[in-house]
């Protein structure tokens, strides 16, 4: 009987196990394999070392490390802006009426499901020197600004594309929050800021973490946004990987992907470790 049962479990789980092993795990092995081999598949550390040491001939700066740190910087800035913009919106949404909440939900999801290439392209035309933004600025009698091709333009694109991914997880956590806790805190003499800091913020941390990873990861690895809104050269780590892929330098592309993956995995493990411990401490205190 139990043999038949475990056979059924194996039949159900079999196809997925094979699929996941073949198409999730084996490909990751190939990233490492290509990263540590040269064109004739002999072991080498050159690809990895190239990432850390290759210098620009003109300025002497480290090309790929600079690109990586620029990606990190812009991704962090975008994530922080998304959080600052998205958090109040998520809170306002939870306080609205049921019907208003649903409408706002639809309004947030529409841009998410619209092809992000078209929307990013639209920003390119808006931010151009002769675009709508500058037309508007000039009609106010002000000096036009040059933003296309700068880091600010890339940040605008990232915030625009990924803001919904910040709002939705925070909203879904906040919507489940018991509002009586807020009322209780008010009754016990907390002012608005204290309620936010001591009740709402701690309760919404899981949503914030979810939102932060959902914005940080795509923005650190994007290449389309930076190609359209950046200055066209290898701007971000995603561009660098894509560029190596296009010029068929698969081993170096794999090396950069490998390094990016290791760094992100370490960062996520750290976040998980820190928050896991905090939850545990919170539980112990209570």
């Amino acid at each position: 009987m139990s043999g038949a049962k475990s056979r059924r479990t194996a039949v159900l789980l079999g196809p997925y196990s094979v699929w996941a092993a073949l198409f999730i795990l084996v490909p990751l092995f190939f990233v490492a394999y290509y990263a540590f081999t040269d064109n004739s598949f002999n072991f080498t550390l050159d690809n990895i070392l190239k990432f850390f040491t290759e210098q620009s001939r003109e300025t002497g700066s480290r090309i790929y490390l600079d690109i990586f740190f620029r990606s990190l910087k812009l991704a962090v800035i975008s994530t922080v802006i998304c959080l600052l913009m998205g958090y109040p919106l998520a809170y306002i949404m939870t306080r609205a009426g049921e019907r208003a909440q649903k409408i706002m939900m639809v309004l947030i999801m529409i841009p998410m499901w619209m092809n992000f290439l078209i929307r990013t392209y639209a920003w390119m035309t808006i931010l151009q020197d002769t675009g709508i933004l500058n037309g508007f600025i000039q009609s106010l009698g002000l000096q036009p600004i040059h933003i296309i091709g700068t880091e600010s333009a890339v940040v605008v694109g990232m915030v625009y594309d990924y803001l919904p991914y910040m709002v939705l997880p925070i909203y879904s956590v906040m919507a489940k929050m018991d509002y009586k806790l807020v009322e209780a805190a008010r009754d016990l003499g907390c002012n608005g800021l204290q309620v936010l800091r001591r009740v709402i913020l701690p309760l919404s941390i899981p949503g914030i973490l979810n939102g932060v990873t959902m914005v940080l990861i795509p923005s650190i690895s994007t290449f389309y946004i930076s190609q359209k809104l950046g200055n066209g050269k290898f701007f971000l780590i995603g561009d660098a990987i894509e560029g190596q892929y296009v010029s068929n330098n698969l081993h170096f592309a794999a090396a950069m992907a490998f390094i990016l993956m290791v760094i992100l995995l370490a960062a996520m493990a750290l976040i998980k470790y820190l928050t896991g411990r905090r939850e545990y401490e919170g539980g112990a205190k209570a």
Partner: peptide, 11 residues
């Protein structure tokens, strides 16, 4: 990141 999933399958 999608780019890594894509690259890994491509390789």
């Amino acid at each position: 990141p999608d780019i890594i999933t894509g690259i890994s399958l491509m390789l």
